[in-house]
Write a protein that binds this DNA or RNA. Sequence first.
DNA 1: CTGCCTGCAAACTCTTTGCACGAAT
DNA 2: ATTCGTGCAAAGAGTTTGCAGGCAG
Lengths: 158, 158
Amino acid sequence: MTVALVTTSEARDKFKEYLVKKGLRVTNQRLAIFDAAFLQAEHFTAEQLLAHARAIDDSVSRATVYRTLPIMTESALLREVDIGQGEKFYRTSSINSTQVAQVVCLDCNRIFEISAPFMEWYGSTVSSKLGLTPVSQRLQVSAHCNAFRQTGSCPRKC
Amino acid sequence: MTVALVTTSEARDKFKEYLVKKGLRVTNQRLAIFDAAFLQAEHFTAEQLLAHARAIDDSVSRATVYRTLPIMTESALLREVDIGQGEKFYRTSSINSTQVAQVVCLDCNRIFEISAPFMEWYGSTVSSKLGLTPVSQRLQVSAHCNAFRQTGSCPRKC
DNA sequence: CTGCCTGCAAACTCTTTGCACGAAT
DNA sequence: ATTCGTGCAAAGAGTTTGCAGGCAG
């Protein structure tokens, strides 16, 4: 079971623990990538993560970012958000992250996350009818911004 | 509003109509790609469609398949199904296709489609709260096959 | 010390695009 | 006759991987 993470340093410790537990090494690059990820308030791409990680440790390479992302995802510290637009997005995990739906604004590409507790129930129900065990589920809505359409800009950030 | 398509030839006529209406030309290649798509019972990839279309008209190229897929999708004769696994899948449309969820078997990669009428309602509700107008929504469940895990093969097709 | 980790660059997958030829209207 | 459509091959985007050297344990 996943424990609530209140501070970044708690998450950092958890990441180190995870590495040790898996027999992986705690390197400066991996920690720099971790720190860069947890500085992000919103969704970010691998490329953005690379830039931020390099600001912390300029020896970080693109390859290491791509090799570290799955580790952080498996350790449940990061969540992958694929909205089917070429590049994948990532976001630091909070509690109940398997019960979150995304609303993607087609005008500004912003991703809003919405609690959707029924999603997990739906996944279980539908899977068991097929003789399957659910692993994950995703619910995404693509939408246009009303304000953007009328005024050419959106009150939020479009 | 979309009309129910009972036969392939009805869909074929609809495709031709769509081309003419949009000022696009009715070419042998486009028709071969259309016919190949409507021979498929299940989901298919661009590459599979190319192979089947070439069996009908061996002059069909990969480029034309990729250029024709969006046309068939826009005309609502085809539906794009992106399960985030690199290549996209396509499927000929039936009624209520915007109210369908996918269950993806991680053992055999098979895609099951399930009616999920609440999905459209959810998309509208959640979007309007954000000042957005929903365009589309998708709900996908990834799952493991119980039978496959126990016996190494699945009664369906895994 | 040992062997995992790293950066670099090349490879890879899927899809898109520029160009000159060919076919639909 | 026009123009749009086509095949080919190259380009493109995002991600993965082989290799020789570097650092953690």
